[in-house]
Computed example of a mutant assay.
Amino acid sequence: MAIPVVVVGDVATDVVVMPSGAPAPGSDRPAAIRSRGGGAGANVAFHLARLGAPTLLAGCIGDDAAGAGLAAELTAAGVELRLRVVPGTATGTIVSLVEPDGQRSMLADRGANLALRPADVPAPAAGGHLHLSGYTLLDPGPREAGLAALAAARAAGCTVSVDPASIGPLGAYGVDRWLADTAAATMVLPNADEARLLTGCADPTDAARALAGRHAAVAVTLGPDGALWAAGERLVHRPARPAAVVDTTGAGDAFTAGLLAVWLDDPQGDPAVALGAGLARAADVVERAGAR
């Protein structure tokens, strides 16, 4: 795969907390706690680079050891970095609370990621691809940078993929506003809940079809039920790969990278192959703690 990809999005440390036993309010609960590289943009860039895509990541980190360590990890994975160090600001941190069934809730301190500005986003090469993490649009700080990235990609004739990020912030941001901001995206990659929110359709299949009326391609992740692809009148479903689920953190980002690596290499190819590649990458990630 030789199509250059610019990823714009968050870089963060994931603090993965895996408690055991029943909740114990006012007392102690044993837990395994690990720190891992995270951030939706960084996760996608990491996996794309590992899959052989020439990948540049644009974002912000703090002037701290965490930021330096994350930059080193991404460089070692083959990601070209365009990360601005924000003085006096901490690198983003996400606490991911993973329950015994593998499901998780997150506490987010986005830190330096909120300082992203249009000048931090490089103009993509003509014929390249932009992947924009939806978190970039959902806060007033980095929003202008996200919009600038979308405008630059359109001007360069690039394909564009966007993920809606998270249903809570997305709902607060506003569906109509989101749809207007991302109208020119080639591909959107929501999960089932996000697809329902964006369309008002209760069934993910109907939601995928509705979004395909706005975008050239749509990939909807369905958790343990796999994923859907919608493009025009075509709808394709692939089941999830069997996996011993430990932690679902970053599964969506891994799916995005796996799918994009195949789709960008052959946009007219069989979407079932692209879905399968995304689901395989996600299955690999959920079998261990952390997003990558």
Rank of each mutant, 00 (worst) to 15 (best):
S161H: 01
L222P: 09
A12K: 08
G111P: 08
G21W: 06
D139H: 13
A108W: 00
I94Y: 03
A155Y: 08
A71M: 15
T248H: 14
Y173N: 02
T199D: 04
R82F: 06
L275Q: 09
S105Y: 01
A2K: 05
T136Q: 02
G213Y: 06
D253L: 01
A251V: 02
G213D: 14
A40G: 03
L83F: 08
G102T: 06
A125P: 02
M1P: 10
G226F: 04
D120Y: 14
A172K: 10
A208T: 04
A24G: 04
A219S: 12
A280D: 14
D206Y: 02
A219H: 09
G37N: 06
A212F: 09
P204L: 02
G128S: 13
G258Q: 01
S133Q: 03
A243S: 04
S20Y: 13
T199I: 10
V79S: 05
G226Y: 05
L222Y: 10
A185Q: 08
G62M: 05
H237F: 11
D270V: 10
A65V: 09
P87E: 02
F255T: 03
A108C: 11
G26S: 07
H129K: 06
A261I: 12
N113A: 13
L74F: 07
T91Y: 01
P30N: 05
R36A: 15
I94Q: 00
V262A: 12
D253A: 01
R281I: 08
P19Q: 09
S27D: 14
A45W: 01
D193V: 09
L179M: 08
L138G: 03
A207N: 02
L81T: 02
R84T: 08
A217G: 04
A251I: 03
P164E: 11
P23C: 13
P118Y: 00
A216N: 06
M1V: 09
A254V: 04
L116V: 05
A172S: 07
P19N: 14
V11I: 10
T13H: 04
A151W: 05
T199P: 09
V245W: 05
A183K: 07
A149S: 00
V11T: 10
A112S: 02
Q103G: 13
T55P: 05
D247I: 01
S161N: 06
L198P: 07
T199V: 09
P164H: 11
V17Y: 14
E144I: 07
A231E: 13
G200F: 09
R104A: 12
D10L: 10
G62A: 13
A68Q: 13
D28E: 12
A210E: 15
R292G: 03
L114M: 13
S105P: 05
A22H: 11
L116A: 00
P4I: 04
L197N: 00
H131L: 14
W263P: 03
G67M: 04
Q103Y: 15
G52S: 08
G88E: 00
A32M: 15
P19C: 13
A257G: 02
G141E: 15
V79C: 13
E99I: 03
T256D: 11
P164M: 12
P54T: 02
L70N: 01
G146N: 07
P190D: 01
A184G: 07
H237R: 14
A77H: 00
T199R: 06
R50E: 14
T221E: 03
T13S: 15
